[in-house]
Simulated assay, not measured.
Amino acid sequence: MSLQAWYMDCSPEDQRKPHRLSPDQPASLEQLQQLGVFHWKLNADIYETDPELQQIRTDRGYSYMDIITIQKDTLPNYEEKLKMFYEEHLHLDDEIRYILDGQAYFDVRDKDDRWIRIAMSKGDLITLPAGIYHRFTLDETNYTKAMRLFVGEPVWKAHNRPADDFNIRQKYVTSLRES
């Protein structure tokens, strides 16, 4: 099954709900790629030995890896962390996540500043480019296990919006105009 993504409504309802527009407005993989968001579907059952994952890591220089489980009874300060992940922000480096189990959403801004929700499930690997405004949340299952990948040492710093004065944000916006 291919990745599902759609434009979101502005409802203040629980962030874990799908928030689809009515009528539904899907977003294609091509639309995501134009934003610099890339996706692979891998076999998460063999992530420790998967040659396809190893090739992606080698090709892209993802030398650092760790695994995080996000659920109420394993993540300290669970509710606060979920609120923090859902704050609109950007990073100075790419964000790379691989869902090993469970489900989650990444929301990204399009060229017109509209939210696109990306439904992630087991086997989905996604890269978000440095400088893109985004946020993360679980879905209503309240569980995901994800691999976090980085080029070199991990950088955990999120810069909440507004962060338009960062060079990486200006570079990203310029790349959107050129595509």
Rank of each mutant, 00 (worst) to 15 (best):
Q4W: 09
Q54E: 10
G131N: 01
R57T: 07
D50K: 10
R135P: 03
R109T: 07
P23S: 14
K145P: 10
V155W: 13
D50C: 14
Y62H: 02
P162L: 00
Q31I: 03
S121W: 02
Q34C: 13
I68Q: 14
R117F: 00
E95A: 01
T58E: 15
A44G: 07
E48D: 09
E13P: 01
D73V: 06
D24K: 11
P23K: 13
T58A: 15
E140W: 09
L3K: 08
N160D: 06
A5T: 08
N77V: 06
A130I: 00
K72E: 15
E13G: 02
I46W: 01
R117Y: 01
E95P: 03
A146R: 01
D113C: 15
I116Q: 15
T127N: 02
L21P: 12
A104S: 11
Q54V: 06
M8V: 08
D101H: 07
E80C: 10
G131V: 01
G131C: 01
S179L: 09
K81A: 09
I168C: 12
L100T: 01
E140G: 11
M120S: 03
D107K: 08
H134C: 00
P18C: 01
F38Q: 10
Q170T: 05
W115K: 12
H159E: 08
R114F: 11
H91R: 00
L75K: 05
Q170W: 03
S11M: 12
K171S: 08
H134Q: 02
D59C: 08
E30H: 06
Q31E: 12
T141N: 13
